[in-house]
Design a protein around this nucleic acid. Structure first.
Lengths: 132, 132
DNA sequence: TAAGTATATTAGCATATGCTTATGAAGTTC
DNA sequence: GAACTTCATAAGCATATGCTAATATACTTA
């Protein structure tokens, strides 16, 4: 579970529609035509949002006759949140994320900013950035 | 913790920059000028993203001399995720979210869709929608 | 109080998102 | 295999998002 996967999960759950769909599909599998009527958006909108949830691995699908049933992957949610909370505790997460050791930076913001500015000029910015 | 608050939290964590900022500020408080140099975006971009994190209550701020120090509200994250997982288990979450009892819907998608379509025509859509 | 520093806000712009309508593809049923 | 149903994809458009540059505000210090 890298941070890109977490980003996708959080992004998938950041819309009201997808959050409600996720909370619904945890109860039992639903097909697209049911979801379309429950949430009062067009069928393509449902499909598109299911695609986003699926890309985040938050739902699974199962074809049955002419229907496709989608259901929430509850285990993934639990484990993702758990791993995120672990990441918060992890002492060296700082290094992985910004390429710095926490001990490199004094608490005094004046000194800290000087160090960072120098570092910024030396290092290429792509070492620090991971896109958006 | 209603679903709107969860939405804000997930939205706040759905960008790479804000996710990394959150993981960083859990280690110790940081001021804007430090963050600006760490993440190689402009100072206004940092302030704007801090504002989003703060609106989701994910960070707290503490003024000290001319600096404003921001730090991650770790407890909120734990409790938010916990409450979301509880919501997934909650039997009647379905009712709150879509205004229907799960027992109203047969598993047979053909019958289920018919019921939903009738319900859709009867009920105003604003009972089912919560915006995006 | 003037100058300097840190942060916030505004305006503007490029890109992303999220819907709708139209269409395509795949499976079902008669 | 033709009509029907279900779902996915594409095109188009309006709005949201996220940055930068410019400016304002607030605090600090001499």
């Amino acid at each position: 579970m890298d941070s890109k996967k977490l980003e996708n999960i959080f992004g998938a759950l950041s819309s009201s529609l997808r959050l409600r769909m996720t909370l619904l599909m945890v109860k039992r599998p639903f097909c697209v035509c049911e979801l379309e009527n429950i949430f009062d958006v067009s069928q393509p909108a449902i499909s598109q949002n299911l695609k986003i949830l699926k890309a985040a691995n938050l739902i699974g699908e199962k074809r049955e006759k002419q229907w496709v049933f989608y259901s929430t992957n509850k285990e993934l949610l639990s484990s993702a949140f758990g791993e995120f909370l672990e990441l918060l505790e992890k002492e060296d997460a700082f290094i992985e994320i910004v390429g710095l050791k926490i001990s490199d930076l004094p608490h005094d913001p004046q000194k800290s900013c000087e160090i960072l500015q120098r570092k910024k000029e030396v290092l290429k910015s792509d070492l620090l950035q991971g896109g958006n």
